[in-house]
C-alpha cells in the first residue's frame, strides 16, 4: 500500500521547511452515517517528525483536526540530503511511518 504520508521538506541551508499531508478519515465520533448511526471516533493521536534521532516536532491531535490533515513547520540543524522520519499512531492503534529526504 502506498504510504498515507506525503512530505515535502526543503532546506535553504539554515532552516528546513516541512509540509506534510496525511491521508486519514479523522472521524470525530459526532458525525452520523447515511443510516443515522454515529461513526465511531477514528483519528490520529500522535504525529512525530525525527531528524538525526531527535524529535524535531511532535503533534498531539484530537478529533477536531480536519480530515486528511495538513501540517507545516520549520526547524534548524538539518541539511540537504538528510533523512526526516515521520510516523503517526491513531486511536485504534494503527500507524504508519515514512522517511523523506530533505531537498
Amino acid at each position: 500500500m502506498a504510504s498515507s504520508i506525503r512530505v515535502r521538506a526543503t532546506s535553504n541551508g539554515d532552516i528546513t521547511e516541512v509540509q506534510a499531508l496525511i491521508q486519514h478519515p479523522m472521524d470525530s465520533g459526532f458525525v452520523k452515517d447515511a443510516k443515522g448511526e454515529l461513526i465511531p471516533a477514528h483519528f490520529i493521536q500522535e504525529l512525530k517528525f525525527e531528524h538525526d534521532g531527535k524529535d524535531v516536532f511532535v503533534a498531539d491531535w484530537g478529533p477536531a483536526v480536519s480530515k486528511d490533515p495538513y501540517i507545516k513547520f520549520s526547524f534548524k540543524g538539518a541539511k540537504k540530503g538528510d533523512d526526516l522520519k515521520i510516523s503517526w499512531v491513531d486511536n485504534k492503534g494503527a500507524s504508519d511511518t515514512t522517511t523523506a529526504k530533505i531537498s
Partner: peptide, 25 residues
C-alpha cells in the same frame, strides 16, 4: 467545539515556533 482542545504541538529546541494546520469548527 464539543471538546475544546484541538491540537497540541511540542516545539523542541531548534524548531521555529510557527505552525500551520487545519481544524474543524
Amino acid at each position: 467545539n464539543p471538546n475544546a482542545l484541538a491540537a497540541s504541538y511540542k516545539i523542541p529546541d531548534g524548531t521555529i515556533p510557527s505552525v500551520a494546520n487545519r481544524l474543524k469548527m
